[in-house]
Amino acid sequence: MTVLLEARNVTKVFSSGGFFKRKKTVALENVSLSIKESSPSITGVVGETGSGKTTLARLLLGFIAPTEGKVLYKGGDLQRMSRDERLEFQREVQVIFQDPFEVYNPFYKVDHVLTTPVAKFHLARSKTQARKLIEHALEAIGLQPEETLGRYPHQLSGGQRQRIMVARASLLKPRIILADEPVSMVDASLRATILENLRKLNQKFGISLLYITHDLTTAYQISDNIIVLYQGSVVEVGDIELVIKNPQHPYTQLLVASIPVPDPDQKWGQDSTPVLVSKTSAKVNWGCKFVDRCPFGMPICGKDPPPLFQTDGYRAVRCYLYKDASVIAGNAIGKDVGPKR
């Protein structure tokens, strides 16, 4: 089974500050994941603000280089690609960003974001062919070409603009689409349509999706498997049904319990988890990163960082509560753990 995109024990450290007082921030620590060529899947990546979601996306896109570890596309290191390989990578791995306002240049018509990739990757031989290709891509996601083409970004709604980005991504017939919070800035009623579009891309065209979000409910709706990040580490990974319906890591449990249920008869319980004191007070912690908020903290949690324990066939949890289960090596995620189908 060939692996398309793979992160192998990736760590990213950002340093800031002056020459003598350098401050180091570990944005991502020893994260591995792989997207296989066969069986196109949707992987959800969830975590709170600052958990390293976007850093992971930028690493996988090759925008930044990992401090340790490697990101590989079809077996080749992203940082050492030849020009042709890079071009192939840029066509086959597409991205949809969070903000449908900032990705457009307000001085150009929206056609610009669609015609540029067609020209760059020589997808069409003539202008009419290019136009047809673009119209086809727009229709596939339920947009009317005559209502969208020839307009300026400010004349379209946020939902329409985001759907044009989905069309642009699909235009290039990619193998993988990375969607970084694609629906967090659009309304609930349009959110559904965009997620449906993404799911169609996966099912109809066999495109694998990495769906990065902080919203567990939409991740549950769309994904096959899920990666839960907490302060740069994978805390739980595996089949979506298992992780959401029966979360094992205390942090995942907290996340699931915090979702406001749209039912007045099903109230939030009172919260026993301590409020995080200050983001600057996060001291160097040798053990588990969640220990100061964890209701099940044990002495060992403060000493050694827990490894990933494989609690059942399709899931791994980074928590000593499951220390009887077998430990899996970090880079096995996506090989041993994954969706059942």
Partner: peptide
């Protein structure tokens, strides 16, 4: 929430995806 009267409210309440059931996304 139990018995929305206005058709818009009905759609709005059916809209948000839940952890209960997985399936078709309902937009307005």
């Amino acid at each position: 929430f139990k018995e929305p009267l206005h058709p818009y409210t009905q759609l709005l309440i059916a809209c948000p995806p839940s952890l209960e059931e997985k399936g078709q996304f309902k937009g307005i």
